[in-house]
Amino acid sequence: MEEWVVNTFIRGLALGTPLLWAALGEIYAERSGVVNLGVEGMMILGAFSAFALAQTTANPLLGLLIAAGAGAAAALLHAFVTITLRANQYVSGLALTMLGLGLSALLGRRWEGLPLLDTLPEVSAFTYLSLLLAVLLWFVLYHTRWGIVIRSAGEAPAAVDTLGVNVALVRYLAVIFGGALAGVGGGFLSVAYRPSWTEGMTNGLGWIAIAIAIFASWDPLRAVAGAFLFGALFHLSFRLQTWVAPEPLQMMPFAFTIVVLALTARRGGRAQGAPAALGLPYVRGER
């Protein structure tokens, strides 16, 4: 029994960490009013660039750093298209996902099949740093002026605009920051979780991160619970196959995480709805 608890906990941390980074990034982007469905694309670009650099320099942490850069660069593209050009955020995000998958596949051909000698442990100081980051991001979002500005840009951009805040700038920064976090999440996959590069290796984890951001009601602390719960249940869905039929077990981590997050969302005093201006481009003077 003790082995089960310990092992499930560790597996939850291992798969939860990359999901948490990507979900935190999406929370910040969406809190500022910009939906970014390109998480999968930003993650895979992060995964590829992290692997390529870690493989060349034998330094996985350097890999994570470049992954942040790659994710941020991809997010900048999304920010430009949706904030400056005011294109549809959903379409741009989907395009970013496709671009990321395609570009990483193209660039990644020569890294296919190469081993990575220096890897990052799955559960390490980095895991605790991730938890600390989530707490910090929660604190910033709810207890600092920056947090108010970001949330206001997503709730009532016209109101913060009249206060002299540059809405476009706030949104740009939030989206780019979100992309950097998604990139690190992807990088973690290729230098720690499964140290290698394979085309399409994120395989849908970006979408799960978006779902966690939404079902966590855009709250960084609840995203921690969502990500680690999903990771643990995902592992358990294989552990339990000896006793439970595998077909329903496939759905279990998805269904259970959604149910838990949805149920807990009903409690607590804070408003839990989506940011009011989510998905809407802001144009001064228009309603």
Binding site: N7, R11, L15, Y193, R194, T198, M201, N203, L205, F234, H235, S237, F238, R239, Q241
Partner: peptide, 11 residues
């Protein structure tokens, strides 16, 4: 599905 293969192996 690398993530599934990973968790199944861990199990």
């Amino acid at each position: 599905d690398p993530a599934k293969a990973k968790e199944a192996t861990e199990a």
